[in-house]
Computed example of a mutant assay.
Amino acid sequence: MRPKIAAFPKCYLDDIAGSKTMTVFEWIEMARALDADGLEMYEGFLPSLNTEDVDRVGTAIRDAGFEMPMLCCSPDFTNPDADARKKAVEHQARMIEVSRQLGGVGTVCRVLSGQRYPDVSREDGLRWVVESIEEILPIAREHGIVLGLENHYKDGFWSYPEFAQKQDVFLELLAGIPEREFFGVQYDPSNAIVAGDDPVELLRNVADRVVSMHASDRYLTDGTTLEELRQSDGTLGYSPNLCHGVTGQGLNDYDAIFQILADHGYQGWISIEDGMNGMDEMAESLAFLRRMVEKYFPEE
């Protein structure tokens, strides 16, 4: 079975989830023009968590001819406040239920580690995240939902970057959670670049646990180098000199990435995070992914 392709409106994230100047239903209607099999959702897109509102979103997605392969959630499991961590676990449990409601059995519900708070040690952070994910795993099993841990940079509404942004921390966290049926990796090559890591090297380390993937791309503005963007802690910030662009035209080596995925028999979803410069670029990114899937996953 070939991987399927989904679209995520990175360009409209703040409009839908922040300022509320666009509704998720408007985005779904716009997406009808795109050559995608599914529409990835973000928890902030939902009008509310009421069953009726969630059902309305799911119905709109299906009526537009799409599936809902992944719900992006951003739990903060590293909050130094134990009560806040408990609330994060409770909220993520509800998001697992919403994922089932929107996408059915097998849907991926993204999880993050949490923010990299200055006063939280690596040891404490890792322990809290493992404990939190282990607590919600039974709920994921009950609903047939797969938790996908993303090598993330930073939720757009967070104060601090991702705790497990760097590859070494991410891999240590992943190793602490041996579950493979209902837990895996939501791989994003561009986030590895933002972290100052090699996306291909990261994929080689996690390929057998990838359950979903984001396929965005980044490019440097003229006269800028990656070294110039590196901060003192070895990571990269969201500098205006590091921009989203058409997938396949940036810094990621998608031939190497797709070859690794094909070698491991990947059958999950690939979702573009694009459109920062308009719907035409989003369509171009989707067309690129179609060609790559056909090239590396030929029909038998």
Results as ranks from 00 to 15, higher is better:
residue 129 V to I: 14
residue 157 F to C: 14
residue 131 E to N: 14
residue 115 Q to H: 06
residue 146 V to W: 03
residue 135 E to C: 11
residue 105 V to E: 14
residue 184 G to W: 00
residue 103 G to L: 07
residue 144 G to M: 08
residue 145 I to F: 06
residue 163 F to Q: 07
residue 193 I to G: 07
residue 138 P to C: 02
residue 89 V to M: 09
residue 170 F to P: 00
residue 182 F to M: 00
residue 86 K to I: 03
residue 141 R to Y: 04
residue 135 E to L: 04
residue 88 A to K: 02
residue 190 S to E: 11
residue 160 Y to F: 13
residue 92 Q to Y: 11
residue 97 E to Q: 04
residue 172 E to Q: 14
residue 122 R to W: 06
residue 87 K to G: 13
residue 109 C to G: 02
residue 143 H to A: 11
residue 121 S to F: 11
residue 116 R to Y: 04
residue 142 E to T: 00
residue 187 Y to P: 05
residue 88 A to N: 09
residue 177 I to D: 00
residue 152 H to E: 12
residue 87 K to L: 13
residue 84 A to Q: 04
residue 96 I to K: 10
residue 93 A to W: 06
residue 179 E to V: 00
residue 123 E to C: 10
residue 188 D to R: 12
residue 106 G to Q: 02
residue 182 F to W: 01
residue 182 F to Y: 09
residue 90 E to D: 14
residue 151 N to H: 15
residue 190 S to R: 09
residue 183 F to P: 00
residue 109 C to K: 07
residue 106 G to K: 02
residue 172 E to H: 03
residue 100 R to G: 00
residue 91 H to W: 11
residue 119 D to V: 05
residue 140 A to E: 08
residue 98 V to N: 10
residue 118 P to K: 12
residue 152 H to V: 01
residue 181 E to S: 01
residue 173 L to Y: 02
residue 115 Q to S: 13
residue 111 V to E: 03
residue 87 K to A: 14
residue 173 L to R: 01
residue 150 E to C: 11
residue 174 L to I: 08
residue 119 D to L: 08
residue 170 F to C: 01
residue 95 M to I: 05
residue 137 L to W: 09
residue 194 V to H: 03
